[in-house]
Design a protein around this nucleic acid. Structure first.
Length: 596
RNA sequence: GGGGUGGUAGUUCAGUUGGUUAGAACGCCGGCCUGUCACGCCGGAGGCCGCGGGUUCAAGUCCCGUCCAUCCCGCCA
């Protein structure tokens, strides 16, 4: 070993010890005679003193630059009382250098590596020089907490008698669902693998295989547009169990999450988690992943406006829609710009405009639509929304789902504005886990003119709803569950179908996939289910999102060592890149040059 | 595919109603300095104002297009 200690272990008790440290030159303070180097490794920083009596260093040190890699041997000495640096854990000692080896002289980094400055540097530069970006202590901590979370996961699931099993990334193309990355086969001209969107079908086969308890930290691939919390390849904690019902799954995941939070943050998460139906989540919070750290709940006023003089509201209710409202308490001082942003948010969710009533601090109600409301309607609004001076009330009138989504979005945006004003608090270190349950099994897709699986086609219907399958498919609830944390979906899963007849019916009758296509894509699953399939269910947790939450980061790029940009590029190595003619020939692929 | 924000020195930013030679801080280079730890002091270099058009006597600034990054909608069974 080149070193005897890391840079964050030496203390006063070590004074007099002969040590060798290695690391990067964090800072260099040259006083002409005496010189100081803060030597940094992944654990911390130790001050090295180059005393002028060792004149041999003079020339070497002249070449030394920030971020160079050096090895120093010397003796640990106590600092004088005035020289103690209380900001450093190693601040009471320093190492007097007796020997210096320069392993690598660094060029000047293209951006500052001090955490607080680097946080502001444009991300494309940081991604281009990811090897420098990751050198920063803050980035190291992000990767460290991710590693801890992975270990906590394995420890917990191992303790629950699970088997960790790897499944193939090279899978078969299944056009239902997310867009896939295709991988050409060299051996089979014109045929392709697809990178697995998730190990879903494999893990169900493992259940038929009698594994009973499977998990995997699975890499998944989806060729969809990116977001702050979405990368083309990402990691799931993928779990599947046999002979369980939903309650077993809730208990398992609550235990897993509690273990991860305990091991990574030392925080105790209370269990069991509250549960909320999909219907209630949409009605009250306007999303299927509610952030319950603040209230501003949405209320339904359809009945109130059913016979209203305000035609916009009245006709919406008349044609089967709803009128909903919520009170952004204390936001009457929203600026014109903020109101415009709120309205744009609403429009993004399909609103035509955003109706509101502003109540001045003096108690005067102001709104372009106020004149259309009757006394009774105003009274009901005032009472049910607890309207007071300085409040701001928003309305949405549309079909149920859209009206909920519009106000759900406005609620989140208004929440942020109120937080900025210090009128509500949405603490980062408060962890509101909950289960969202009783999702519809199927949704009618207007565009496709058929039903589509709300979750995926393997989700089992709620038993007592099975009779409704033929009469009222929309009303059938799936045995699907989402685990939500502070407005983020962190896990989703379901109890699966394990009877071949029911699975076939879902494919053919509801999803209207042609018989031959079902056979081609899912034939092996239906076959497997005929050979003794146990009842089973599973779940997948978005591991990157978990890690980013644990690390207190708002996007998952910071907990992924080498993430891709929003356009799917790796700026460090320029992937994706063109393939050469020989390579393409071997894969039986011809590339059409696309003009314009 | 659509919308928002941003792109000026190595980095982070400023840049007035369009008007002399485009600035600051940090970093970098040279010099001085024996107790600093955001060391200090003196001096210096460094710019395709993302790119391409256009308007204008004159464009970092206005217009059009485009590229890149990022956030959101669509999409993510």
């Amino acid at each position: 070993m080149k070193r005897t200690h890391t840079c964050n272990v030496l203390r006063k008790a070590d004074v007099g010890t002969q040590v060798t440290l290695v690391g990067w030159v964090d800072t260099l303070r040259d006083h002409g005679g005496i010189q100081f180097v803060d030597l940094r490794d992944r654990k911390g920083v130790t001050q090295i003193v180059f005393d002028p009596q060792h004149t041999a260093f003079k020339e070497d040190l002249h070449h030394l630059r920030h971020e160079s890699v050096i090895e120093v041997s010397g003796v640990v000495v106590a600092r004088g009382e005035a020289e103690v640096n209380a900001k450093l854990p190693t601040g009471e000692i320093e190492v007097t250098a007796e020997r210096l080896v320069i392993h690598n002289i660094a060029e000047t980094p293209p951006f500052p590596l001090e955490d607080e400055k680097a946080e502001k540097v444009s991300e494309d530069l940081r991604l281009q020089y990811r090897f420098l970006d990751l050198r920063r202590p803050a980035m190291y901590r992000n990767l460290e907490i991710r590693s801890k979370a992975a270990k906590a996961t394995r420890d917990y699931l191992d303790g629950q008698d699970f088997l960790e099993i790897e499944t193939p990334c090279l899978f078969k193309s299944t056009p239902e669902g997310a867009r896939e990355f295709l991988v050409p086969s060299r051996i089979h001209p014109g045929k392709f693998y697809a990178l697995a969107q998730s190990p879903q079908q494999y893990k169900q086969m493992l259940m038929v295989a009698g594994i009973e308890r499977y998990y995997q930290l699975a890499r998944c691939f989806r060729d969809e547009d990116l977001r702050a919390d979405r990368q083309p390849e990402f990691t799931q904690i993928d779990i599947e169990m046999s002979f369980i019902d939903r309650e077993d799954m809730y208990a398992l995941i609550e235990g897993l999450v509690a273990r991860i939070w305990k091991d990574c943050l030392g925080v105790d998460i209370p269990t069991p988690f509250p549960r909320m139906t999909y219907r209630d989540a949409m009605d009250q919070y306007g999303v299927d992943k509610p952030d319950t750290r603040f209230e501003l709940k949405i209320e339904d006023f359809s009945d109130c406006f059913r016979n209203s003089q305000f035609k916009v509201f009245q006709s919406t209710v008349d044609s089967g829609g709803v009128v909903k409202a919520f009170n952004a308490k204390g936001l009457a001082d929203a600026t014109q710009g903020e109101m415009r942003d709120l309205e744009n948010g609403a429009k993004a969710m399909g609103a035509k405009g955003l109706a509101f009533i502003r109540i001045t601090p003096e108690g005067e109600w102001k709104s372009p639509i106020l004149k259309f409301f009757s006394e009774d309607e105003l009274a009901e609004l005032k009472e049910r929304l607890d309207i007071g001076n300085g409040d701001l009330v928003f309305f949405a009138a549309a079909d149920w789902e859209r009206a909920c989504s519009i106000l759900g979005r406005v609620r989140l945006d208004a929440g942020k504005l109120l937080q900025q004003r210090g009128r509500i608090s949405i603490p980062e270190d408060q962890f509101n886990f909950l289960w969202v349950i009783e999702f519809p099994l199927m949704l009618f897709d207007e565009e496709a003119g058929r039903y589509v699986a709300a979750h995926h086609p393997f989700t089992s219907p709620v038993e007592e709803d099975i009779p409704l399958l033929d009469s009222d498919p929309k009303a059938v609830r799936g045995q699907h569950y989402d685990c939500v944390l502070n407005g983020m979906e962190i896990a989703g899963g379901s109890i699966r179908i394990h009877q071949p007849a029911l699975q076939k019916k879902v494919f053919e009758d509801f999803l209207q996939i042609p018989k031959d296509v079902v056979e081609e894509r899912f034939g092996y699953m239906l076959k497997a289910f005929r050979y003794g399939a146990p009842p089973h269910g599973g779940i997948a947790l978005g591991f990157d999102r978990l890690a980013s939450t644990l690390a207190g980061r708002s996007h998952i790029r910071d907990v992924i060592a080498f993430p891709k940009t929003q356009r799917g590029q790796d700026l460090m190595n320029d992937a994706p890149s063109p393939a050469g003619p020989a390579q393409l020939r071997a894969l039986h692929i011809e590339v059409n040059e696309i003009e314009d």
